[in-house]
Simulated scan of single mutants.
Amino acid sequence: MKRVAVSIMYDGTRYHGFQRQRELSTVESAILPVLRSCSPPEGLDYSYSSRTDRDVSSFWQTLTFLVRDDCDVEDLLARLQRPEEGIGVWGFREVDLEFHARYWALWRDYVFVDRTENYKCDRFEELNAILKNVLSIRVHDFLYKDYKRRLGSLSLERRILRVQVFPVGEHIILWVRGESFPTHYVRRLADFLRKYECGRGFKTHIGSWKPGAAEGWRLFLTGVRYPVSMKRLLSPVELVKRVFKQTKIGSFELQLLSSFLSSSKRVLSPFGVLSW
Rank of each mutant, 00 (worst) to 15 (best):
M1G: 05
A5N: 04
V6K: 01
V6T: 12
S7F: 06
M9Y: 10
H16V: 04
G17K: 09
G17A: 00
Q19A: 13
E23V: 01
S25H: 05
S25I: 11
T26G: 07
E28C: 12
I31M: 13
P33F: 14
C38W: 05
P40Q: 15
D45F: 15
S49L: 13
R51I: 11
R51M: 10
D53C: 03
D55I: 01
V56Y: 07
L63E: 09
T64N: 15
F65V: 10
F65Q: 03
R68A: 06
D70R: 09
C71S: 08
L76P: 06
L77N: 05
L80H: 12
Q81H: 15
R82A: 11
R82N: 05
P83C: 07
E84R: 12
G86T: 07
I87H: 02
V89Q: 01
V89L: 10
G91D: 06
F92S: 04
E94G: 07
L97Y: 11
E98I: 08
E98M: 14
F99L: 08
F99C: 06
Y103F: 14
D114V: 01
R115I: 05
R115S: 14
E117R: 14
C121H: 03
F124E: 00
E125F: 09
E126R: 10
I130S: 04
L131V: 14
K132W: 05
K132M: 08
S136T: 02
I137T: 11
H140M: 09
Y144A: 10
K145Y: 12
D146E: 05
G152D: 03
L156T: 07
I160A: 02
V163A: 11
Q164V: 09
E170F: 12
E170Y: 14
E170N: 15
H171C: 11
L174D: 04
L174S: 06
L174C: 09
G178R: 04
P182M: 03
H184L: 14
H184C: 01
Y185N: 05
V186G: 13
R187V: 13
L189F: 08
A190E: 08
F192G: 07
F192H: 02
R194D: 12
Y196S: 03
G199P: 04
G199C: 12
G199Y: 13
R200T: 13
F202E: 08
K203C: 02
T204F: 02
I206E: 09
W209E: 04
P211C: 00
P211D: 00
G212L: 02
A213H: 02
A214L: 01
A214E: 08
L219F: 00
F220T: 06
L221Q: 03
L221F: 03
L221M: 10
G223Q: 07
R225C: 02
L234V: 06
P236R: 00
V237C: 00
K241L: 05
K241F: 03
V243N: 01
F244C: 04
Q246N: 05
T247F: 00
I249C: 00
F252E: 11
L257S: 05
L261P: 05
S263K: 10
K265A: 11
K265S: 12
V267E: 08
V267N: 07
L268A: 07
S269T: 14
P270D: 00
F271E: 01
